[in-house]
Design a protein around this nucleic acid. Structure first.
Lengths: 347, 347
DNA sequence: TTGTATGCGTTATCAG
DNA sequence: CTGATAACGCATACAA
């Protein structure tokens, strides 16, 4: 294994000079620097990152910890976050964390190893003790999650989370689209929801649905609710398909279905079509998220679009404010956008 | 910052004993070990990974380098690779690499930093000099790529790649589905393809298409080919939508379209539908990949399914054989599966 | 502008 | 079973 010493020897200079060449330090003769760089290239020398991290005191890097990397929603977010981060001349570390892994522990460890300046959490970060969160002495922002942590059970914002986050108002936007369905004359609105025990966005969207119904004088009916199985289902098209078939087999009357995610909505559509029913003639279908797949589906899916670009930008902006101590924790709640397409009709 | 020294002091033992406790070494008194572990937990001590990597000689870890993380196809692969790796008691490192980044350089660096035992490349690894590849002294396997490197321009396998890979036969499977379209009586078959300059799977699938046509006595016609714009388009639904509209505007006659990816096929379907044409009555549409989105689309998309699970398992299996020197480089070419669904009709 | 020496936090070696 | 100490490869303070 080649080390900086070997290079120094090969160049006939000291190790620190090589180090200076590598790290673009100013106080070095341009000629020696070029010579060293040439030798390095010739030897295919690669500095050992562990040693660098160990020695370095500071660093200009932030990390994104992402739970549920398969979420297509996150792909675009990452792109933007990465771009914005690089604009600010910071290095960007992407770290995926298992569904059953503790993202906070991973964050703690990574912060130490990479001497991080800041962290962004994408997904997850729902259930953590204040105490453990406090161990994280690096500025961090929760993106598209964390809202729940500041919400009371009935969905009302209690306004005192001790940390920063950026998210859409899942409860409010869910309310909005269900209310929209009601305004179109729908009275029997089914829902494809997360499992009952869910305490994340699934719960928020579910609560928004129920409240919208009540405010429209409709009492939520358990027979029109179809929940995922805990630890079996996920937010996939297949799940939507399964849930919809289950709902249809109950032979209950309804005119619209609200799926709490576009992926579920698409699976639901397929189930409806295979049952020889038409969308939206027989059933209206509404989703949530604003995925590309919903836009190009046949019929295209009426949904709430999450402002991905905006969320990403605000997240990075907030994180850097925190890092530069330009203000304390803030909670940014962005509006979604009701996108009216083909899958819902007036009744 | 707390170090192993602080823990040793707090426990009244030497640092090496603490190290033993952390690393599950056998030669340590179970009681002291438990005591140390307790103190560690109490202090929230986290060992510095950089220091560990620096000092450690061996390691039991493999990495997956993935180019194009948004590819939904890769999500499932990663899941399986990770599972299989953990079965073998190895640690798994996922490293994403930018589209414009050099995955080989990243691999070289990571191998050094993390003392990797093996590497899996997902996507990318198309254009690299033999010389640079040889620098990588760690066993590696190319998954769902690399085939091209052993192919001649006309798609024939030249059989002497100096490295291992696992993939489907993009050329052959592409040939298969186009041939299937021909067998159904289609004579004018359009294609939605990658940009002309593409030298990856895009080229292979394109060549398979042309050869299938010729073998069915049909001369490929440029007017029925619609290529992506280099560096602008990607394998998204939106691209498929754009290309299909472009193709339709040419007002050329055709009865079937073959999109070289399911995502493109779905966008194409949407474009056709918006032009008030029916699938498959007016146009048959075929895809490639076997994405969930194609299965649940309306109409469901006839396609070639890549055996994701199998690819992933064979990849890991091959890598570990290489690592354990149980054989030299091998090239595994798996068959795809023609899945007949609703988007294609006989003519 | 350059070289030397020290220490980052850990594990491995060796002596007890 | 345990503890002292020498590396690991690099960046940096300091001396030249």
């Amino acid at each position: 294994m080649e080390t900086i010493k070997d290079i120094a020897k090969a160049c006939g200079v000291g190790v620190s000079t090589v180090s200076r060449a590598i790290n673009n330090h100013p106080d070095i003769n341009p000629e020696t620097k070029q010579m060293i760089l040439d030798v390095i290239k010739e030897h295919n020398y690669i500095p050992n990152n562990s040693a660098r991290n160990l020695k370095r005191t500071k660093s200009k890097s932030v990390a994104v910890l992402i739970k549920g990397i398969s979420n297509p929603f996150f792909s675009r977010m990452i792109e933007i976050i990465e771009y914005e981060t690089q604009q600010k001349k910071y290095t960007f570390v992407l770290q995926r964390v298992e569904e059953n892994e503790d993202e906070l522990s991973v964050a703690l460890q990574l912060a130490k190893e990479k001497k991080l300046k800041g962290i962004i959490f994408l997904g997850g970060m729902i259930t953590h003790s204040e105490e453990k969160i406090r161990q994280l002495d690096v500025p961090f922002v929760l993106s598209t999650s964390g809202y729940i942590a500041g919400k009371d059970m009935d969905g009302k914002w209690n306004g005192n989370a001790g940390w920063s986050f950026v998210t859409v108002d899942d409860y409010g936007e869910s309310y909005k689209i269900v209310n929209y369905l009601c305004s179109l004359g729908h009275k029997k609105i089914a829902i494809l929801a997360a499992d009952i025990e869910d305490d994340s966005i699934g719960k928020l969207r579910y609560e928004g649905y129920k409240q919208a119904l009540r405010d429209n004088g409709i009492e939520p009916c358990g027979d029109l609710e179809c929940h995922m199985d805990e630890r079996v289902d996920n937010y996939s098209m297949r799940t939507g398909y399964r849930l919809m078939n289950k709902l249809l087999s109950r032979e209950k009357d309804f005119t619209a279905v609200y799926a709490i995610a576009d992926s579920l909505a698409i699976g639901a559509c397929r189930a409806i079509i295979e049952n020889n029913k038409k969308i939206p003639e027989d059933y209206s279908v509404a989703g949530f998220d604003g995925l590309e797949a919903g836009e190009f589906y046949n019929p295209s899916i009426t949904t709430i679009r999450q402002p991905v670009e905006k969320i990403a930008k605000e997240t990075v902006g907030l994180l850097f404010q925190l890092m530069q101590k330009e203000g304390g924790n803030r909670q940014i709640i962005l509006p979604g956008e009701l996108i009216i397409r083909e899958s819902v009709k007036e009744i």
